[in-house]
Every structure is written in structure tokens, then in C-alpha cells.
Amino acid sequence: MMKQKEVVGITFVNENNQILIQERGSYSKSGEDYSFFGGGVEENDRHWLEKLKKNWISIWI
């Protein structure tokens, strides 16, 4: 069985459908130059994540 890890990612898109990405530079873990914003979710972050999802979903509906 594969180890599971919960993560969250955010994609910012402007009115011209341009996507904002993060330049990794010296923070690169695997040699990547660019990545999306996000990271792992700790157990004590779970309630904030649920609140964010609920608020963002209600904005787009």
C-alpha cells in the first residue's frame, strides 16, 4: 500500500487566463524551476482547510 499524504494547492488565474506560478530557485527539492503554491496539510490545519474550501466553493457557485 502506498503512503498517503494530504496536500493543498492554490492556482491564481487573472482575467487574461494567465496562471501565477512560484519560481523555486534555491528552494527546489527535486531540481524543479517552477511550481504551484501549496504544501502539506497537518492534522491541526484540517479545520482551516475545510473552512477555506467551504468559503471558496460558495464564492464560485
Rank of each mutant, 00 (worst) to 15 (best):
S58K: 05
K3E: 15
N16L: 06
K53I: 10
G39T: 00
I19Q: 04
W56N: 07
N44L: 02
L52S: 02
E6F: 10
R24V: 06
V7Y: 15
M1H: 13
F37C: 09
F12L: 14
W60H: 03
V7K: 10
N16P: 06
W56E: 11
E15D: 13
L49H: 01
S30C: 14
V8E: 15
N16R: 06
R46N: 01
K29Y: 12
K29R: 09
E23I: 04
R46S: 02
K54P: 12
V7A: 13
L20K: 07
L20V: 08
L52Y: 00
G25E: 01
G40Y: 06
I10A: 09
D33E: 13
G39A: 00
H47F: 11
E32Q: 10
N17G: 07
L49D: 01
Y27W: 05
I59M: 03
K5W: 15
G38F: 01
N14Q: 01
F36M: 12
N16H: 07
M1D: 13
D33P: 08
K3Q: 14
T11H: 08
M2S: 09
R46A: 01
Y34I: 02
N16Y: 04
M2V: 11
F37M: 03
Y34A: 04
S58L: 03
H47G: 03
G40M: 08
K3H: 15
G40V: 05
M1G: 14
L49A: 05
N14Y: 01
F12W: 04
Y34Q: 03
S26I: 06
K3P: 15
I57G: 05
S26K: 06
Q22K: 10
S30N: 13
R24H: 06
K51P: 02
V13N: 03
L49M: 11
V41W: 00
R46Y: 00
R24N: 08
I21R: 07
T11N: 11
F12S: 10
S26V: 04
I59L: 12
L52Q: 00
N55W: 08
Q22H: 07
N16G: 08
T11V: 15
Q4D: 14
Y27N: 14
G25N: 03
G39H: 00
K53H: 07
Y27S: 13
N14D: 13
K5S: 15
E50W: 02
